[in-house]
């Protein structure tokens, strides 16, 4: 895994998806891998995203809704979206209130796939 390649993926997602402002990749236990952030604190974002993902998974299982697809948090000033990357990592994306969330889901799936390959060492660059 190259952190430069992971960072390039995050920057490419920000370029592609209108409204994406920041993002980070972390392990599922909240340790930061790489961040493309502006104002957010990367380590705090990684830890909280891991907690958010865990809560989403547990809540989905508790109410019998099956496997988690993503966690979307909508606030007055924007969105926080957390995707699982395989079983070991996560991608957290921050976007402003103009973010088209359904479109982000489409744009981010290939990114999540490539990040999974990068983190598993199956790929070295985008």
């Amino acid at each position: 895994m190259s952190n430069k390649a992971v960072l390039a993926e995050l920057q490419a997602l920000r370029e592609k998806a209108t409204g994406v402002t920041e993002s980070a990749v972390a392990s599922v236990d909240g340790l930061l891998v790489t961040a493309d952030t502006d104002g957010a604190r990367p380590e705090a974002l990684a830890a909280l995203a891991a907690a958010t993902l865990g809560l989403g998974k547990r809540t989905g299982h508790e109410v019998g809704m099956g496997e988690l697809r993503e966690v979307v948090v909508r606030c007055g000033g924007g969105h926080v979206v957390v995707y699982a990357i395989r079983q070991e990592a996560l991608l957290v994306v921050l976007g402003d209130e103009g973010l088209d969330v359904p479109r982000l889901h489409l744009d981010s799936r290939p990114t999540v796939e490539r990040l999974g390959e990068l983190l598993a060492g199956e790929r070295t660059s985008i």
Partner: peptide, 20 residues
């Protein structure tokens, strides 16, 4: 990018995700 510095030199592969 204004994120934290990369943990290793560009292109240098690491073997695993960070672990607690």
């Amino acid at each position: 990018p204004t994120g934290p510095p990369v943990r290793e030199d560009a292109g240098t592969p690491s073997t695993a995700l960070p672990q607690r």
